[in-house]
Computed example of a mutant assay.
Amino acid sequence: MDIRLHKAAEADDVAAVQQLLVTGADIEARDASGATALLVATRGNRVKAAQALIEAGADVNARDDIQDSTYLYAGARGYLEILQLALAHGADLGSVNRYGGTALIPASERGHVEAVETLIKAGVAVDHINRLGWTALLEAIILSDGGPRHVRIVELLITAGANVNIADREGVTPLQHARGRDYDKIAALLEKAGAK
Rank of each mutant, 00 (worst) to 15 (best):
D2C: 07
A8P: 02
A8F: 02
A9L: 08
A9S: 13
A15S: 10
A16N: 11
V17Y: 01
V17S: 00
L20W: 04
L20S: 02
V22F: 09
T23R: 15
E28K: 15
A29Y: 05
R30I: 15
R30H: 13
R30V: 14
D31Q: 04
D31N: 12
S33P: 01
S33F: 15
T36G: 05
A41G: 09
T42D: 04
G44C: 10
N45R: 07
K48T: 10
K48L: 11
K48A: 12
Q51I: 03
I54M: 03
E55H: 08
G57K: 06
A58Q: 02
V60Y: 02
V60P: 01
V60W: 01
R63C: 02
R63L: 02
D64F: 06
D68Q: 08
S69E: 03
T70K: 03
T70A: 15
T70I: 01
Y71W: 09
L72C: 11
L72T: 03
Y73H: 11
Y73F: 15
Y73A: 03
G75R: 00
R77Y: 07
G78V: 07
L80V: 08
I82A: 00
I82S: 01
Q84S: 09
Q84Y: 01
H89L: 13
G90C: 12
D92A: 15
G94T: 13
S95Y: 04
V96F: 12
V96A: 11
N97W: 02
R98F: 15
Y99E: 11
G101V: 05
T102A: 14
A103E: 03
L104K: 05
P106K: 04
P106C: 10
S108R: 03
S108D: 06
S108H: 07
E109H: 10
R110T: 14
V113E: 01
V113C: 13
V113Q: 00
V113Y: 00
A115M: 07
V116W: 00
V116K: 00
I129C: 05
I129A: 02
N130L: 03
R131Q: 06
L132N: 15
G133R: 07
W134V: 01
A136M: 03
A136H: 05
A136V: 03
L137I: 04
L138I: 13
E139Q: 14
I141W: 02
L143Q: 09
G147W: 08
R149E: 09
H150L: 04
R152G: 01
E155G: 06
L156I: 08
I158K: 00
I158Y: 00
T159L: 12
G161H: 13
A162N: 08
V164P: 13
N165M: 12
I166D: 06
A167H: 11
A167S: 14
E170C: 05
E170R: 12
E170I: 10
T173A: 15
T173P: 09
L175T: 06
Q176D: 10
H177G: 11
H177S: 06
G180H: 10
R181N: 15
A187D: 05
A188R: 13
A193S: 08
G194Q: 13
